[in-house]
Computed example of a mutant assay.
Amino acid sequence: MARYRGPKSKIARKFNDPIYGPDKTLAKKNYPPGQHGRGRRKKLSEYAIQLAEKQKAKYTYGLLEKQFSNLFDHASRKSGVTGEILLQLLESRLDNVVFRLGVAPTRNAARQLVLHKHITVNGEIVNVPSFSVKLGDIVAVREKSKSLEAITYSLSRGAVSKYPWLEWDSTALAGKVNVLPTREEIPENIKEQLIVELYSK
C-alpha cells in the first residue's frame, strides 16, 4: 500500500478524531464515511478496536505498515513501558520533530521540507523523514532556506515552544531535543495499550 494521499476528512470521520488538525467536515458529519455511515453499526470486536487504534496511529504519524511494525519491534526490545516507548519513537522521527517545533504546520508539510533538504541535524542536511532524532541533537532550518515563505509563515503562527521537551532558538531557527517526551507531553489521542495488546496476540 502506498502512503495515503486521499481526503483527510474521510480518515478523521473514520476514527471520529481530528487526527490531521481542526476539521469542519468532522464537526458537521460526526459519523463514519460511506453509504452506511449513518446506519446502525454492529458492536466492534476487541480485535477490531485494537486494529483501529493501530491504524489511527499509522495515519497520524504518516507511516506505512512495515515501518510501524518495525518501530513496534524496536520499542518492544527496550526496557520500560512498550506503549510509551513506541510513542516516544514516533515523536522522535525527524518529520515529527520539525512539525512539533512549528517549522511546518502539519506533519505532511514537515515531511516535504525534510525531503527537499531544507532541514539539518547537527549541521548536516538530512532528507530522510524517518530519521530518528537523539537527545541533544540540533534540528535546524538550512541557512539557504530560512527565508522560504512556507517556513516563515508557519513560524509566524506562533506554534513554537509549545512542548517542554524541545528547546527553540528563534534567532538561529534551530531546536534542540532536551529530553524524551513523557506520555503526558504527547497530545495525540492514541490508546497505545490497545496497540501493544494487538501485537501481543
Rank of each mutant, 00 (worst) to 15 (best):
D137K: 10
Q193P: 04
N189S: 07
R183T: 04
L194A: 09
E167A: 11
K54E: 14
R111D: 15
R13W: 10
S79D: 13
G123R: 13
K29G: 05
H36E: 14
V98K: 09
N127D: 11
T171I: 11
P164I: 10
L51S: 00
K54D: 07
R5H: 13
A57D: 01
I151N: 14
L63K: 11
G136F: 01
L135C: 00
A150K: 14
W165N: 06
G102N: 02
N30S: 10
S79Q: 10
A57M: 05
Q50I: 01
V179H: 15
S154W: 06
E167C: 08
A12W: 08
S130D: 02
G158W: 11
G175Q: 14
L89E: 07
D17W: 10
R157E: 05
E65D: 15
K201A: 13
Y199H: 02
V177W: 04
P33F: 05
S76K: 12
Y153P: 04
L115P: 06
P18T: 08
A75V: 10
K146N: 01
R5M: 11
L180G: 04
G102M: 00
E46H: 11
E143P: 00
R13L: 13
L194H: 01
L90T: 07
S156T: 12
F68E: 03
I186T: 09
E188R: 04
V81P: 04
K176R: 13
G83F: 10
K43N: 08
K134M: 00
R107H: 12
S200C: 04
K78G: 07
D17M: 12
V141S: 09
E188T: 07
K29H: 01
K191G: 09
D137F: 12
L94T: 12
L135F: 03
A12S: 15
N30L: 05
V177R: 02
P18C: 13
Y31K: 05
V141N: 03
G158L: 08
K29N: 11
A12E: 13
P22I: 09
P33W: 09
L101P: 10
E143T: 08
A75P: 08
V133Y: 03
L173Q: 05
K201F: 09
N127R: 09
G39I: 04
R5C: 10
K56I: 14
K8E: 08
G37C: 12
S170T: 04
E188S: 09
L63H: 08
D169F: 01
P32C: 07
A109I: 14
A57K: 13
L90F: 07
L51F: 00
G39M: 05
I11D: 08
R13M: 02
G34M: 02
R142D: 00
P7T: 09
F99Y: 15
P33I: 00
G83Y: 06
S79P: 06
Y47F: 14
K191L: 05
R107V: 07
L166A: 07
S79H: 02
N127A: 09
N70W: 12
Q88I: 07
A52S: 14
E46V: 10
D17T: 15
K10M: 14
L148E: 03
F72H: 00
Y163H: 15
A57C: 15
K146P: 05
V179N: 13
V81F: 07
A75K: 02
A159H: 14
K14E: 14
A172M: 07
L166I: 03
T152G: 11
K28C: 05
K201N: 03
L166K: 09
